[in-house]
Amino acid sequence: MEKWFNKAATWVAHVSGRPVTFIACLFLVLIWAISGPFFGFSETWQLVINTTTTIITFLMVFLIQNTQNRDGAAIQAKLDEILRTSDALNSFIGIEHLTEEEVCRFRDQCETAAKKADADNKCAA
């Protein structure tokens, strides 16, 4: 079930981001707008677009979030592998699971090290 959902979520996220999908949705909205006079701009006519867009938006939030979560986890795994196999500090592996304050400390550590490296490079030159 999860594998099917992941495939479906990835496909929907991919298709929804294409220009042709935007044009198709724009076309549907134009048809809806043009049909207004034929339905007397009734409440039912308005309810059709409101309900449709609300349902689509509600479902898309979950599908796109699922895709972004998996993409983020994959990127983290790749970065962790680069850290693990390089001369970098292994203590950075898995920091995405820390609190914001703990991540800020790691970021400060990196900025301090970068400034020190820049200063050392200027002195050596």
Rank of each mutant, 00 (worst) to 15 (best):
L26T: 05
P19R: 01
E111A: 07
F106E: 15
L26V: 06
V29D: 05
R107L: 08
I31M: 03
Q65Y: 14
G94V: 08
D108S: 10
F38P: 00
K116F: 03
V12Q: 07
L98V: 03
A113Q: 05
T54V: 11
Q68Y: 14
G36D: 06
I93V: 10
C110V: 07
G40F: 02
E2I: 14
I64K: 10
Q68F: 15
F5N: 11
N90G: 14
C25R: 03
T53E: 01
C25T: 07
E100K: 07
Q76G: 09
C25K: 02
A77Q: 14
S16H: 02
K122Y: 14
E81N: 11
V48A: 00
L30A: 04
I64V: 15
D71E: 12
R84W: 15
F62H: 12
T51L: 09
A9Y: 02
D118N: 08
E102T: 04
F92C: 08
I34M: 05
T51P: 02
K3N: 15
Q65K: 13
C25M: 12
V103I: 09
A125Y: 07
G72H: 06
E100Y: 03
L63K: 10
H14C: 06
L47F: 14
V15D: 01
S91W: 03
L98P: 06
E96P: 01
F92I: 09
T85W: 08
A77Y: 12
G36T: 04
I75F: 00
A119V: 02
A33P: 02
N6W: 12
H14R: 10
D120V: 01
M60F: 13
T10Y: 00
V103M: 09
W4S: 14
I93G: 01
G40T: 09
I82Y: 03
T44A: 14
L26F: 05
Q68I: 15
K7H: 15
Q109G: 04
I56K: 04
K3H: 13
C110R: 06
I93L: 06
N121V: 06
T85C: 08
T10P: 01
N66P: 01
M1H: 13
I49Q: 02
C110S: 09
G72T: 01
G94D: 08
S16D: 06
F38W: 11
I64M: 09
V48P: 01
F62A: 12
G36Y: 00
V12Y: 04
Q109T: 10
L79A: 09
L26I: 02
S16N: 01
A114T: 05
P37E: 10
R105N: 09
F22N: 11
H97T: 07
W4Y: 13
R70N: 03
F106Y: 15
L98A: 08
F62Y: 11
L63Y: 10
F92H: 06
E2C: 12
N69I: 12
R70G: 03
F39M: 13
A88E: 13
T44P: 00
D71T: 15
F38A: 07
Q65I: 12
A117R: 03
N50E: 08
I64D: 14
